[in-house]
Design a protein around this nucleic acid. Structure first.
Lengths: 155, 155
DNA sequence: GCTTGACCTCAAGCTTGCTTGAGGAATTAG
DNA sequence: CTAATTCCTCAAGCAAGCTTGAGGTCAAGC
């Protein structure tokens, strides 16, 4: 959390060290290592076996973090990024496709939570929670009806 | 998932075995064991050291599951239930208080996701994701501004 | 009275998403 | 050149919320 002593770039203009990326993207170095083992980002090594990144990685990390905020698990993010031709860094067009896809999931999540809230409103004070009658008790319409994908996302 | 051979009740009318509770509440036996170790439900033992429950446990489990659906972690559920005088099973009035409290959290969650969705809409296609400009990149207004409670719930 | 099936108690494992630590090598500021 | 950083690679740990397994007891049906 201290200010870097050197400029935020390594000597070479293009290549970013793992520390550079951490500072600029706001994620921990260990997280970048972790993302790499999971195939979400890539790097090459310099003569001394240290990781070097292109600037692209910053955008990739940005996309990862936004997708996570919408509730998308890392494996799906990895797949979505890997599905890009050449696994390249998302362009504006790629980003449009990705974000629209994730937006649908986000909408679904919001819809489920809203439905739950409405049921909660309807039931507050009734105290019944009866298995056959109470909509809150019988999540079939929310969980069963929508398949288990919903469960995974909502839980 | 097979039909029980005997009626769904143990011989004694009042006491439910762990299997009875599992069948009636829809959670696994192991989950009931787990909830008990976490102090969410209680039981006594019969002569043969087997768990016995009153019918109350069904309502408690119902409340637990609903609270979980709204995103409340088990520790908070435990505290909320424990805060009831005598740790008794929630009455209609208790349920009203609990559900209203959890409703607020649910509202917050929905609000955050909705805000995120709107930002996503605003940004779809722009592809900028610039650190200083893009609202999606700078989650300060959502995460930082609302404290880390939001992060925990949303992640 | 014997065979199932239901229960019991630990202990360990699983998933997701990372963090922490140990032990050592490379880089860089002065 | 040297000391302070930074970085490296595993391995292990953590939190939540359960599940699975081993080894053994209890209860119920025929």
């Amino acid at each position: 959390m201290k200010m870097p002593r050197r400029g935020s770039l390594s000597a070479t203009k293009q290549a970013l060290s793992v520390g550079d990326v951490a500072r600029r993207s706001g994620v921990a170095v260990s997280t970048l290592h972790f993302y790499e083992t999971k195939g979400l980002i890539q790097s090459w090594r310099n003569a001394g076996n240290q990781r070097r990144y292109t600037r692209d990685v910053l955008r990739r990390v940005a996309v990862i973090k936004i997708a996570q905020r919408t509730g998308v698990p890392l494996t799906e993010i990895r797949e979505a990024l890997a599905a890009l031709p050449d696994s390249r860094t998302p362009t504006a067009a790629d980003w449009r496709r990705l974000s629209q896809r994730w937006r649908v999931a986000l909408d679904t999540r919001i819809a489920h939570l809203t439905q739950l809230r409405d049921q909660l409103d309807g039931c507050i004070g009734c105290g019944c929670l009866s298995l056959s009658q109470c909509p809150l008790r019988n999540p079939g319409d929310v969980l069963g009806g929508d398949g288990e994908g919903a469960q995974r996302l909502e839980r």
